[in-house]
Design a protein around this nucleic acid. Structure first.
Length: 146
DNA sequence: GCCAACGTTGGC
DNA sequence: GCCAACGTTGGC
């Protein structure tokens, strides 16, 4: 899951311990959230920041439920099409697991052949939520312990 | 249903 | 700040 560290960082998550991942307004990303199961592990990725990369691990603590911020006119991510009957957008609750001692930068991720098919590394990928395979996850976890 | 225009994302 | 790559919107 991507986040801009200036907006909501791994340190914010560490402090909050749990947060509702609201504000996703892209159908593909929403569908990926919908498919998540409680306990699933998540990499937290800082985009548009220095350094860019994977900064830690979180997990799903509550499965997809309606994102009420879509119905809040004052919210940055307000969507006039969303209603209580048809909320359109959903979110999951995310719990802090750990912060890596160092960020695994995008530049470094790109050097790993085992990760070359990773969704987040594909050119032009702008999806804020992308799936990670088990082998990709294991590999990155190992890299994090260097 | 097509597609141009537009807005956004995000790496560089 | 630039720009490629998208997703969305709206006229036709």
């Amino acid at each position: 899951m991507k986040t801009e560290s200036g907006c909501y960082s791994i340190d914010d998550l560490k402090k909050d311990r749990v947060t509702a991942w609201s504000g996703v307004r892209n159908y593909q990303a929403r569908n990926f959230m919908h498919d998540m199961n409680k306990g699933d592990l998540i990499f937290i990725y800082h985009s548009n920041t220095e350094p860019i990369g994977i900064v830690g691990i979180a997990k799903v603590s509550k499965e997809a439920y309606p994102d009420h911020t879509a119905q809040d006119k004052k919210d940055e991510h307000y969507d006039p099409k969303a209603t209580t009957a048809k909320p359109i957008w959903n979110m999951v609750d995310v719990r802090f697991v750990k912060k890596f001692p160092q960020c695994i930068t995008l530049a470094e991720l790109k050097t790993h052949k085992k990760l070359k098919n990773m969704r987040i590394l594909q050119k032009g990928n702008r999806l804020s939520i992308t799936p990670v395979t088990k082998s990709e996850f294991t590999h990155i976890e190992k890299v994090a312990q260097r």
